[in-house]
Nucleic acid binder design. Sequence first.
DNA 1: CAATAAATTGGAACCATTATAAAAAAATAT
DNA 2: ATATTTTTTTATAATGGTTCCAATTTATTG
Lengths: 138, 138
Amino acid sequence: MKKDRPFTHAIDRLGSVGLRPTRQRLALVRLLFENGDRHVTAEQLHREVTEIGVKVSLATIYNSLNQFTAVGLLREVAVETGRSYFDTNTAAHHHFFNDDTGELQDIPGDSVVLSTLPIAPDDTVVESVDVIVRVRNK
Amino acid sequence: MKKDRPFTHAIDRLGSVGLRPTRQRLALVRLLFENGDRHVTAEQLHREVTEIGVKVSLATIYNSLNQFTAVGLLREVAVETGRSYFDTNTAAHHHFFNDDTGELQDIPGDSVVLSTLPIAPDDTVVESVDVIVRVRNK
DNA sequence: CAATAAATTGGAACCATTATAAAAAAATAT
DNA sequence: ATATTTTTTTATAATGGTTCCAATTTATTG
């Protein structure tokens, strides 16, 4: 029995974080998590979900992206002021950002390593370290 | 003769990049470059220039920040979607960003070093590498 | 000092995002 | 099942940062 049951997966994923499996959320979860690691903006996701014939308002896209992020299903990546990118890979890793295309992409596992972690300013603790390697088309 | 002549400095700095030394730009250049390395948002700078009694419209603040960035006097740093930060230090270096206060601050010279630079995706070249260490108040 | 070019300005426009309040859907209790 | 309660979705308005615009002011050049 090799057949996947994506619907169930999506339901389970939502259930595991305490979010109700609504039609909208299910469609979004499938788009986001059943196609490998992804980096999406709200507009992009809205276009995609609309293309597959599911009607979801932009407001719900934003609500969902924020909820998913709050429960740790997604991670937000700040690369450009103006619009937000959401990454389905929540593990610690870094990014390439193509300034020409606006495309964001994971940097393979350990090909960037910080040799030293700097000492945080007084009375602060390090939360996370983001490395963004900006590239341009040749 | 140790006395500085900041006005002349400001004029020179503008002249060197081919921007006319207007009253507004002079005030902004002085605020930005005569107080060590700084990280400012447009709103912040507008407040500051207003406080010292110089009338500059927000539009001009934005124009100037963008112009200064275009000619290499400033560097833009993307830390949060929503607002832009401008850094008076254009040399290669990295940042601490305090999520609680919104404060951006340079990481001293070499206390963060990337051990490996990852190989850029096909048909792209690396433009720059931004490291942002996010911290929170203890 | 006149003519020309560039910069500044207030306000409208814009864009991504968030808030709001009413309608719809899902969960729960009966 | 059905009624009741709670959560979610939605359209639309509101927001916040930024850019655009046409008119006015300022700086440079002749």
